[in-house]
Nucleic acid binder design. Structure first.
Length: 473
RNA sequence: GUCCCCGUCGUCUAGCCUGGCCCAGGACACCGGCCUUUCACGCCGGCGACACGGGUUCAAAUCCCGUCGGGGACGCCA
């Protein structure tokens, strides 16, 4: 039997973090077992489904490199299949029409809740004594599943273990709305049967749906697949992750300068572990992922750790790739995109250990990307002082005379002056740093100078010198 | 309210199934130190948890029961 998993989002919004992890687990499990990973769009709720959401979900999956083998399939294109199966159930006396009005049902539900009872369908339209109910004429009706009133339904869940539900807890769920369109729990089962899904891996908020679905499988004459309900992702307040916890869409992280590898690595470790290992390549994940190692308890989303993983990927990324990846962020900040790829690489190399995201890296690259450096006045006051004017001027001359404008050459120029004047490096480096970058913190001063190049370095030193001159008078 | 799930450092987790190797290991964050031209990186060290109460046992984070706490489901949403 070849493994077939599926990710089945409803396109009512972007792909959120929890969905991304579910997709990842399904993907990994399928790949691990040489199976197929299927994408299905559950768009039966026509009110809330949008083409934009579909696009956003596909984009997010693509960004995360969770490529699917079949689909996307759309439930709205499969109405015939659902209708056919409803007819089958109706004919077999396993479903029945219900003429209860939504308002009635709602009132009963409210009352039950108020009286602290479990709100459930009271069976008003349930056919008595095993008769096959006839279709009501001239009245709107829904089709309900005739759910057994006794016995138990067992879910043998790969992560949660054996969970037993009393069938009395399950009411006669609606399979088709009064407009004839099928509902979620029914479509899912029909689809998973037709698409030959062998393993359903999804959030554990679906665990309580599972006994109904198992009952539907049985009614339709099929064996249920394996179920694996993975715990939910919580916010810092332990409530289910939602908008108020900040960025929750997968692509929001892309836009904030995170790498897909980092997000995937973070997400997979939330609820799953392989010993003490923290960093996983995609290949390792495929090799090592297993549902048995997925934990049972919900996990809190920790942005700090994601950031740490991202910085890891930032530090270890091939430079030429990094250079490509920062370009969109440079443009987004409104800088002209540098054409010299090699230069971009050198620039990124000096910054990558100081930034945790691409956004941060580009922010710190301001003095490379623009000649209008923002001078920190406090720093200027402290370091661009008259006593440094001479060494600074001398350094400018030394750098101007350099035939090879490399890090090594720059260092020699510095050392020569420092030795002659018996100055510690910091005494000269800080003023130079302020002159070139506008701030007291930056990458190593030799790297900065080498990357900036002779012309821009000299120009900035010159204007610093001028500033010292004028403030003297 | 009813049903279901869950409960190891602040957070993610290893260990739990197959009790002793665990006065509980790793990671993020935090604190201190080292490295150092600044800031980072890196390295070293520190802080810090078996929810609680009973039981079983020579021995319990690990097995059993209860309590408490958190989450989820209860839609003509998915």
């Amino acid at each position: 039997m070849t493994v077939r998993t599926r990710f089945a989002p409803s396109p009512t919004g972007f792909l959120h973090i929890g969905g991304a992890r579910t997709a990842l687990f399904n993907y990994l499990f399928a790949r691990r077992h040489g199976g197929k990973f299927i994408l299905r769009i559950e768009d039966t709720d026509r009110e809330r489904s949008t083409p934009e959401a579909i696009e956003a979900i596909i984009q997010a999956l693509t960004w995360l490199e969770l490529d699917w083998d079949e689909g996307p399939f759309f439930q709205t294109a499969r109405y015939d299949a659902y209708k056919e199966n409803i007819q089958k159930l109706l004919a077999a006396g396993k479903a029945f029409p219900c003429v209860c009005a939504p308002e009635e049902l709602d009132a009963k539900r409210q009352l039950a809740l108020k009286e602290k009872r479990k709100p459930a369908y009271d069976g008003t339209c349930r056919p008595k004594d095993g008769k096959i109910a006839s279709i009501p004429q001239g009245k709107p009706y829904t089709i309900r599943f005739l759910s057994p009133r006794d016995g138990t339904t067992v879910v043998d869940d790969t992560v949660k273990g054996r969970v037993v539900f009393d069938n009395r807890e399950l009411d006669d769920l609606i399979l088709a709305r009064s407009d004839g369109t099928p509902t979620y729990n029914f479509c899912v089962v029909v689809d998973d049967i037709d698409m030959k899904i062998t393993h359903i891996i999804r959030g554990d908020d679906h665990l309580s749906n599972t006994p109904r679905q198992i009952l539907l499988y049985q009614a339709l004459g099929h064996t249920p697949p394996e179920f694996a309900h993975v715990p939910l992702i919580l916010g810092l307040d332990k409530a289910r992750l939602s908008k108020r916890h900040g960025a929750t869409s997968a692509t929001a992280y892309r836009d904030m300068g995170y790498f897909p590898e980092a997000l995937a690595n973070y997400l997979v470790r939330l609820g799953w572990a392989h010993g003490d290992q923290e960093i996983f390549s995609r290949a390792e994940l495929i090799e090592k992922f297993s549902l048995e190692a997925v934990g049972k308890s919900a996990g809190v989303f920790n942005p700090e750790k994601l950031l740490w993983l991202n910085s890891h990927y930032l530090k270890t990324r091939p430079l030429s790739r990094l250079a490509d990846e920062i370009v969109p962020f440079i443009k987004a900040k409104g800088y002209p995109a540098p054409q010299d790829h090699a230069w971009l690489e050198r620039m990124a190399a000096t910054l990558r250990e100081r930034a945790k995201t691409l956004t941060e890296l580009v922010e710190q690259a301001h003095f490379y990307l623009s000649d209008e450096i923002s001078l920190d006045e406090k720093a200027a006051k402290k370091f661009l002082t008259p006593d440094i004017r001479e060494p600074l001027a001398e350094l400018a001359d030394g750098l101007a005379a350099l035939s090879e404008f490399s890090e090594g050459g720059v260092e020699q120029a510095f050392t020569a002056i420092l030795q002659r004047r018996e100055l510690p490096l910091g005494k000269l480096a800080q003023p130079v740093r302020v002159a070139l970058t506008g701030s007291t913190t930056s990458p190593g001063i030799y790297e900065v100078i080498a990357v900036l190049g002779k012309e821009r370095t000299l120009r900035r030193l010159k204007s610093a010198l001028e500033r010292i001159q004028t403030s003297q008078v």
